[in-house]
Amino acid sequence: MSILNISAYRFVSLDDLPALRERVLARCHALALKGTILLAPEGINLFLAGPRVAVDAFMNWLRDDPRFAGLQAKESLSDDVPFKRMRVRLKKEIITLRHPTIRPEGGRAPSVGAVTLKRWLDQGHDDEGRDVVLLDTRNAYETDVGMFPQAVDYRIASFTELPAALAADQSRYVDKTVVSYCTGGIRCEKAALHMQDVGMQRVYQLEGGILKYFEEVGGTHWQGDCFVFDDRGAVDKTLAQAPLSPPAPEDEAKATTA
């Protein structure tokens, strides 16, 4: 497999969006990369594919900007480029929740790594003996492809529906340790901040999302595959394209994730 696929995001204040868009798009075209990059006042969310040398060259160029220094990407390999074109889009949010008081660039919610989460699931509780509740922050068509089977799944059609679902069900989480998760980390990070904002205690995000969990612990406790927003449709626990992968919904523009 000769194509490197990466996904990455960073919540950081950006105030030069039109000019940044042109520079980023020009660099991607120069390197013949394909994918989608979202830019918003709150940060960057990117999905790129191409030969490793080209992807690495782009990421090194991007990290020369101090705002993106240290940006880490989740990686997977494929035989073909799973995008048809290269797009850089300006948006109000890099992941839409419509709760403007939540500003992730001002500070992250606590996170838990894949190895720690696996240990908690193995032992049936966190390191302080509390029950652990997993919260899947993804859309229903994603959870249909695969999920932690014990996780709370609100069957939402859009991430914007999550706050209302949580508000109607807060008693479920009292005296529990809550770990929100998503594909690559961006949604579970915003979700964890929202849960803190409404007074929920002992809330964590799964660091790096499902893709990092697969990479580090091989998908233990996971059931099924993981939906991804590109032409692969889904990846399995080895981060290879899953067989008979479902197509991404067209209206998602293959860029909602992570």
Results as ranks from 00 to 15, higher is better:
Tyr181Arg: 10
Ile94Met: 12
Arg52Pro: 13
Arg21Lys: 15
Leu206Trp: 11
Leu4Thr: 14
His125Cys: 15
Leu134Gln: 04
Phe47Ala: 15
Leu25Gln: 10
Pro243Cys: 01
Asp175Leu: 08
Val53Ser: 15
Arg10Ala: 08
Ala109Thr: 13
Asp136Leu: 01
Cys182Met: 01
Glu93Ala: 02
Ser180Arg: 09
Leu162Tyr: 00
Asp56Phe: 04
Ser111Ile: 15
Asp197Lys: 11
Leu97Ile: 14
Gln223Ala: 15
Ser78Ala: 11
Arg155Pro: 02
Val198Lys: 05
Tyr213Cys: 02
Leu46Gln: 00
Gly199Ile: 06
Asp79Arg: 09
Gly70Glu: 13
Trp222Phe: 07
Ala69Cys: 14
Arg85Thr: 07
Lys92Gly: 12
Glu189Ser: 01
Ala255His: 11
Asp136Phe: 00
Leu33Trp: 00
Arg130Gln: 14
Met147Leu: 11
Asp56Gly: 13
Asp136Cys: 01
Thr137Met: 07
Arg85Val: 05
Gly113Leu: 05
Leu166Asn: 01
Ala248Met: 10
Asp236Ala: 08
Arg21Trp: 02
Asn45Phe: 08
Asp131Trp: 02
Ser76Arg: 12
Leu25Ala: 11
Val198Tyr: 06
Phe47Gly: 12
Gly199Cys: 12
Gly208Glu: 09
Val133Arg: 10
Val24Arg: 00
Asp56Ile: 10
Leu39Phe: 10
Arg98Val: 09
Leu135His: 07
Arg187Asp: 00
Ala40Lys: 01
Ile37Ala: 00
Glu128Met: 14
Gly199Glu: 14
His125Ile: 12
Pro51Thr: 08
Asn45Trp: 07
Gly70Ile: 13
Pro243Arg: 08
Ser171Lys: 13
Arg138Thr: 04
Glu189Val: 01
Ser180Trp: 07
Thr143Cys: 05
Pro51Ile: 09
Phe229Arg: 06
Ala49Pro: 02
Arg155Asn: 09
Arg232Tyr: 05
Arg23His: 01
Tyr141Trp: 09
Ser13Ile: 09
Asp225His: 15
Val81Thr: 11
Lys254Val: 03
Pro246Glu: 05
Glu128Lys: 14
Gln170Ile: 10
Val178Thr: 14
Ser111Thr: 14
Cys182Val: 02
Leu206Lys: 14
Trp120Ser: 08
Met1Pro: 12
Asn60Phe: 06
Arg52Trp: 12
Ile94Asn: 13
Ile37Val: 10
Val133Gln: 08
Gly184Cys: 03
Leu48Ile: 02
Met59Val: 09
Arg63His: 03
Glu128Ala: 13
Lys34Pro: 00
Ala192Pro: 09
Asp122Asn: 06
Ala49Gly: 10
Ala258Gly: 12
Leu166Phe: 01
Arg108Glu: 15
